[in-house]
Design a protein around this nucleic acid. Sequence first.
DNA 1: CTTACTGTACCGGCTGGACGGTCTTGTCAA
DNA 2: TTGACAAGACCGTCCAGCCGGTACAGTAAG
Lengths: 177, 177
Amino acid sequence: MRAPRANSREKILAAAADVAREAGPGSLSLEAVASRAGVSKGGLLYNFPTKAKLMQGLVENYLRDFQKALEARTAEARHESALSAYIKLSADDCERPKPSASWIFSAIAEDPDFLAPIKAFKHQLLERLKEETSDLGSLLICFLAIEGLRSMNLFDSDVLSEDEHKLLVASLLKIAG
Amino acid sequence: MRAPRANSREKILAAAADVAREAGPGSLSLEAVASRAGVSKGGLLYNFPTKAKLMQGLVENYLRDFQKALEARTAEARHESALSAYIKLSADDCERPKPSASWIFSAIAEDPDFLAPIKAFKHQLLERLKEETSDLGSLLICFLAIEGLRSMNLFDSDVLSEDEHKLLVASLLKIAG
DNA sequence: CTTACTGTACCGGCTGGACGGTCTTGTCAA
DNA sequence: TTGACAAGACCGTCCAGCCGGTACAGTAAG
């Protein structure tokens, strides 16, 4: 009665994100993830020989998806700036009230250095956006405001109403030009 | 060799913040905090009968300090808006590269609900700022950009250079009017 | 075709250690 | 005497990582 489809890796990664979101970042144990993924602990450890490797996999997966989504957005609308695409992507990401990435807190608790790739990615993204604009001040405001939006979503903070969210996005797009 | 008359409570709170910052949020154990505070475990548990109470104390302390600082800023410069005061306060808070509040991650791992008072505070602050301005769009941008700045500081992300930081603050103050 | 061998993917019990919380005993100042 | 701790042994629980299996796929000799 072995599972025919092998790709346990992705199932495990998804399960880890689910557990962190639903049971809280403090409850992300290997057993919980394995159980959620329909895999034994041994099977989990086979795919990710250590918890740190699992966290690393989570980060890499996240970054890969993010980059893919960003490329798709910028490609599908050539007439607008990359900054606008980034704003819209982030607005969509943050619209639904899914923290969706609270596993990040588990990773930080494990070791803050796990965020290094994310920081590097953000830095690289900002550099790329800088090349496209002449108004650095406006770019920084937009970039940081999006960062704020993402952090609110991450912390599951619904400080903004839906109308305010839309107004914010519209205002940002106006500034971005 | 007892401490003469030092309020252990504050020492413990400060020690907890220190441990989380230096050893990482995942290493914030009662023993580590007690040792750092120069207090025995028994003494710690006398002041904070449970780890949850300690986290709660951390949050309350943080909020109290924040409100005090904000009131001081707004009071000392009556001719400028509360939003400007908030921007300047946050800029100063985030300038020095001190995460200073990574204990927040420990609190989240313990129980995400510990952030509820912080969310309420933020919401209340935004409401107060809304009453002062006519341009809601600009306010939201400033508020979120500051949130972004604070999250960068929290995650110990130095994506922005010092010059960019200054430019951002100047641009925000211009928008804030 | 069959037997024997090899590697892959996974199972699940176990252990050693860390941690939160309790409890007891002691100390010293007011 | 009491209140505010110090000191730390102890307990129960949780959890990461380890290890000895197991099921199956391929493969290749006989």
